[in-house]
Design a protein around this nucleic acid. Structure first.
Lengths: 325, 325
DNA sequence: TTGTAGGCGTTATCAT
DNA sequence: ATGATAACGCCTACAA
């Protein structure tokens, strides 16, 4: 089962390697007749062009690398859908790399993309430090989605505003003991908490923050503690996944979401949209984020992407029953 | 921002390209002193070995290609976690390729892996026809997970048994009008339905099958129809995602899961494990599936993987409140 | 321990 | 329209 090469096809078809290459790349320079002949032979031999060799030899093959933080969080699936939506219509390759909870893993994942010599990197959900991100952005063409930092191109949603809207919604609902279940405090992901804090301060209400993790189970445990200690009447979680953890905590405490304790998430994942959960949340427009990032990447592929070519979306509050009595 | 090569590093460090190569591959043949020197220079220049060139030149670089059907279904995230768990401890590269609902997309995704010249392919959730799968398995070293077919190595769970257990559980619960919300009827994914049918036949109960899709929203619509037409007292969905759709349908009908209509899913995704949903389901041990597939892939990397080297896991029924009154 | 040189499978430039 | 022939960046005997 030896790998068959372009040379094998050329020999079998009685033409030069150059012609086979031209035929398979679909560029002009072959007669219809010989092209078909070449394809016929190639097909029979089971020939598939070696992308590694092609990438090495060609400056014409465009490929963009995509980093996704976590396959368990549907937000990234949404972003990916958006990316593919626009890339699919293009003659562009995609190389994927995924992260994980493990710290330092995302740097390694980006390195893989660089080693693969992708022309542009779209990174969704980077958790590295600002300085590290900036280093990467300087050395490569990098578009950060979901996360922004000084001097790096990014596509994001205004987390501060979204969180402010969510908090104000709860305040307007008559709640005063509103708690925020925070994500790990890393660079680039402090906007939601800031929005919450400001909204609370403005209303003259005491802030009640509890730091949690990205794991739903952990969120559940933290929410349980929160319920005992702070006795909040409303909990705003940093994302839908942890909001689900809050719902879990309520259920096991016998409390009714909405009626007893209002719950709000963030991301508007398909999960929050289900009638069963009916989770009030903030929509960052993940799919659009992905599409826009891909369009920027396309720009970076040809002309140039300015050092700091960023776009920020307006998030939207989506009210469902989890925050209504 | 020119790409810097091994030659640049060699020149700057005052050594030959060979030495730089040796140093970066971490093999024996360099003095500690010069290795460190080379690394220092390389670091300063921002050198990252070109994987394309490396793969082309070397037969020693092992890489495994991973295909995942759908990022929106957490099952594949679980499988992927399992794969990475064992691969991470190895000196092996991973190339990822993802599918989508669009038919014919998975073939294209596999082609990408082949073009990248991965040594082994782990494909989770292939929906192509048996014959097409068999063609691929003949031309490459392919391990199918979740899905099995004659003559192709696979790692799967006994869907027939799992579905049988689930159905028998419902029968034992006193239900007689039990409906099965089926997945699209494609090659390789008929086991669950078969298990349901046999269990029903054995009990002398009438089968009530409704074909649905892999979309949760579609499952919800189909479940609604089902509730009106067949008046089932229990619904067994082909996976957790569509079971969630069933729960949605119940909620919007004012029916209580468990109390009014029993619901059972399949996959034991983290979703079903949440106290809020508490979905009775069947655990195919997705994480283990991924681990085992990776171990087989490792075998395929070195020695040989027999044409049909398959392993099948025993699924496990996980009873939660969605199927209890 | 270090350097030399040929080859990996394509692409791309120049001829023909 | 077709065919030689250098790159492309790295690996790997083989020499030194």
């Amino acid at each position: 089962m030896r790998k068959i090469t372009i040379e094998d096809v050329a020999k079998a078809a009685g033409v030069s390697r150059a012609l086979v290459s031209i035929a398979y790349r679909g560029v002009a320079g072959v007669s219809d007749k010989t092209r078909e002949h070449i394809f016929a032979v190639g097909q029979k031999l089971g020939y598939v062009p070696n992308l590694n060799a092609a990438r090495l030899a060609s400056k014409g093959i465009k490929t963009i690398g995509v980093f996704l933080q976590d396959l368990h969080n549907e937000v990234f699936a949404d972003v990916f859908d958006g990316i593919r939506k626009v890339i699919d219509e293009q003659e562009v390759q995609l190389v994927i790399s995924v992260g994980s909870a493990e710290p330092g893993r995302d740097a390694k994942a980006i390195d893989t993309l660089i080693a693969a010599r992708v022309d542009v990197i779209i990174a969704a959900g980077l958790t590295m430090s600002d300085s590290e991100l900036q280093r990467y952005a300087k050395a490569t063409t990098l578009i950060s989605v979901t996360r922004k930092a000084h001097g790096v191109s990014s596509v994001s949603s205004d987390d501060y505003l979204g969180a402010k809207l969510a908090t104000e919604h709860l305040i307007a609902g008559g709640h005063s003991r509103i708690s925020f279940l925070a994500n790990p405090q890393t660079d680039g992901y402090l906007g939601r908490q800031a929005g919450y804090l400001d909204a609370m301060a403005t209303a003259g209400l005491p802030a009640l923050v509890k730091e949690s993790s990205y794991q739903r189970v952990q969120a559940e445990a933290d929410a349980l503690e929160l319920l005992e200690q702070g006795k909040p009447t409303a909990i705003f979680a940093h994302n839908d996944l942890s909001a689900l953890g809050v719902l879990d905590a309520l259920v096991s405490t016998g409390l009714k979401p909405g009626a007893d304790v209002a719950v709000v998430g963030y991301d508007n994942t398909s999960l929050s949209q289900t009638p069963v959960l009916a989770l009030t949340t903030v929509d960052p427009h993940s799919f659009e984020l992905g599409k826009t990032a891909a369009q920027l990447a396309l720009k970076g592929l040809v002309g140039k992407l300015d050092g700091d070519d960023s776009v920020e979306f307006q998030p939207e509050l989506v009210i469902r029953s989890s925050s209504m009595r």
